[in-house]
Design a protein around this nucleic acid. Sequence first.
DNA 1: TATGTCAGGTTATCAGACAAGTCTTGCGCA
DNA 2: TGCGCAAGACTTGTCTGATAACCTGACATA
Lengths: 235, 235
Amino acid sequence: MTEFARVPQLSTRIATHLQTRIEAETWPPGTRLPTEAQMMQEFGVSRAVIREAIAQLRNAGLVETRQGAGAFVAAPGARPIRLEPAQTMDRRAFAKLYELRTPLEVEAAGLAAQNARKPDLARLAQAMARFDVPEESIEASVAADLEFHHAIALATQNPYFVQVLAAISDRIAHVIRAARAEMTLADLHARTRSEHGAICAAITARDPQAARAAMRAHMAGGAARIGLRQKQGPT
Amino acid sequence: MTEFARVPQLSTRIATHLQTRIEAETWPPGTRLPTEAQMMQEFGVSRAVIREAIAQLRNAGLVETRQGAGAFVAAPGARPIRLEPAQTMDRRAFAKLYELRTPLEVEAAGLAAQNARKPDLARLAQAMARFDVPEESIEASVAADLEFHHAIALATQNPYFVQVLAAISDRIAHVIRAARAEMTLADLHARTRSEHGAICAAITARDPQAARAAMRAHMAGGAARIGLRQKQGPT
DNA sequence: TATGTCAGGTTATCAGACAAGTCTTGCGCA
DNA sequence: TGCGCAAGACTTGTCTGATAACCTGACATA
């Protein structure tokens, strides 16, 4: 009968405790966890708490439950890849995130040039067209930017790029929006349009090398615009 | 009364329903969700189900709950990046995952060459040393491989690379382990040792360009060894 | 051996209650 | 009038007990 302090939620503490047993392979995949009743006794809490702890693990993909059968340790391949959010999104953490984003966007541009299909190119052109109108608001501009990069990710034909880039871009856009940039909206709009145009042209021409180079320039430009230095040479 | 179609759990259905409202910005960040009592009435279920649904959203990082106050839609920046597991980890999905891993490992090698500190280089050398002994088992070999790549990720000084590469490598290693490879263990050991050595040397020499090239060769070699074709040229 | 049935165990859901924390409101006081 | 503060309403966290849906394994039977 272990006694838990009440600082974090009871269920969370129990969940992390169980998680260590699973990740330490004390309970290898396929193992059946103790029943809820047994855990109630072991941890000295009510069934509601146990159920919530199990729910957390199930949500994290570490266990699977079957009504009437029990809870089982899931196979590693079934677990989702998960990146914990940075505690504070300060300038340093932001730069690190951008550092992660850059090679992914560059590679996505190259893959898009190789693998894009007709509908992908159409979607890309459509995203480009949104820049033809004069700049309206920071919101509209950011949304158009996101849509363009999303179209590239889709063109890779690789769902992993779509997912991870969507998550990263979304967070970066959020910070940009909050920071408000130091340049005029008109200038930002023009530069983005120009750089996006180069990328779009290279992808449409199915030139992976040019697409990568254009995207790399775009990333470096974006980093510079928001005050980040990238000390990265040619790859 | 027999049910033919098995429906997902009640809590899951309600959770996804709430999720659509959040992602459609019907409830923008900061909004307070209806109270548990209100939802009980709206959906006609017990409080336990509502609480499980909320718990799912909380685990997904979409809402935050505060005792006595309520449940609130979380800021996008606070949400963890999450990659859903592929339904089936077949050869195609595996290739896509490798496609994502390659640019990340290449960039990590380059950043490691730029940013590695003394302890990082020591850890790298230690990981290399594990290959000096003759091959033992497939398990030991895979573990040493993972440790080497983990050491590189740490040397980037970028926690995002550490997290995402750890998650991806772990899953790839799992598949490799299951597939058992087509080459002899001795041959695999020798090749891995040779390629890792080149990477390690480039990083220790603080030569980012050479580190990137060596890692790219290593990735291509690994892909070829497990039967994947990479149609990727120089970046 | 093969098969159908049943009993026991397990999770899913329901219902009601109290504890702990938060927010609002109104009252007393300066 | 304006401010401080405490009481009370409200909300989530935890506990308790019960029923329904479901799974597994043993057992009887042909």
